[in-house]
C-alpha cells in the first residue's frame, strides 16, 4: 500500500475527525476525539486505486466515503431492500489533464447498470447516492460532450464497494489474505 494512501486512511482515525453532514446537506468535518472506536464510515470506505494509465495520476490517491443516506429509520433502505448510501469521492495529489476532465461513474460488477455521478470539481471531489448492492467506482477521463450513459474515455482510477468483496468462495480464495490483495483491493 502506498504510504500516502495509508496515511490518508489512518490520519482521520488518529485525529478522531470524521465527516458529518449538516442541515444544508453538505459535508462538514466534525472533530470528536471520543469517536476513536468508530468503524462505521471508515469501515465502509472504498479505496480508489490509480490505473497508472494517465500522467498526473501516478502518485494520486483517493477514496469514496460511504454513509447511510438520511432516513427516519437510521438505516436507509430502498423499497427493494438495497442500502441507500450517500457517498463522497475525493482524490488527492492528482493533476488535472490538459484536455478533458475526470468523471465519476458507478457500475454493477457485470457492468449491466452504470450510474453517471458527474465530473470531479476543481478540488477533485464529487458526491452522490447509490443503491447498488455491489458496485465498482470508475473515474474516467472524458472529453466535452461525453456520453452520460457510460464511460468512453480511459479509466484513471477504480475502486470496489466493500460489498463487492463478498465474492463466491469458488471463484476466489476463501480468506481475505488470499488474492484480493493482489487485485489491489486492500
Amino acid at each position: 500500500m502506498r504510504i500516502e494512501i495509508l496515511l490518508g486512511l489512518i490520519a482521520p482515525l488518529l485525529l478522531g475527525a470524521h465527516i458529518g453532514r449538516h442541515a444544508a446537506g453538505e459535508r462538514v468535518a466534525v472533530a470528536d476525539p471520543m469517536l476513536t472506536c468508530s468503524a462505521g464510515p471508515e469501515y465502509y470506505r472504498i479505496d480508489l486505486v490509480s490505473t497508472r494509465k494517465l500522467p498526473g495520476t501516478y502518485a494520486a490517491s483517493g477514496f469514496v466515503d460511504v454513509q447511510y443516506a438520511r432516513s427516519p429509520f437510521g438505516v436507509a433502505l430502498s423499497p427493494t431492500g438495497q442500502y441507500v448510501y450517500d457517498f463522497d469521492v475525493k482524490l488527492a495529489d492528482v493533476k488535472a489533464q490538459p484536455k478533458g476532465h475526470y468523471v465519476v461513474w458507478l457500475a454493477t460488477p457485470t457492468l449491466q447498470d452504470v450510474q453517471h455521478v458527474g465530473p470531479l470539481s476543481a478540488q477533485f471531489e464529487v458526491s452522490g447516492q447509490v443503491t447498488f448492492n455491489k458496485f465498482l467506482v470508475v473515474v474516467s477521463l472524458e472529453q466535452d460532450g461525453y456520453d452520460t450513459a457510460r464511460w468512453t474515455g480511459p479509466i484513471a482510477f477504480r475502486g470496489l464497494s466493500r460489498s463487492g468483496k463478498m465474492h463466491t468462495s469458488i471463484g476466489h480464495g476463501l480468506f481475505q489474505d488470499e488474492p484480493c490483495v493482489q487485485y489491489g483491493f486492500n
Binding site: R21, V30, L35, S38, G40, Q67
Partner: peptide, 17 residues
C-alpha cells in the same frame, strides 16, 4: 447520530438498530 452524522428529525425511541 449514526457514524457521526447527526439525526435531524428526532423521535423518542426505546429500541433502535
Amino acid at each position: 447520530s449514526i457514524d457521526g452524522v447527526p439525526n435531524e428529525n428526532l423521535v423518542w425511541k426505546d429500541t433502535a438498530i
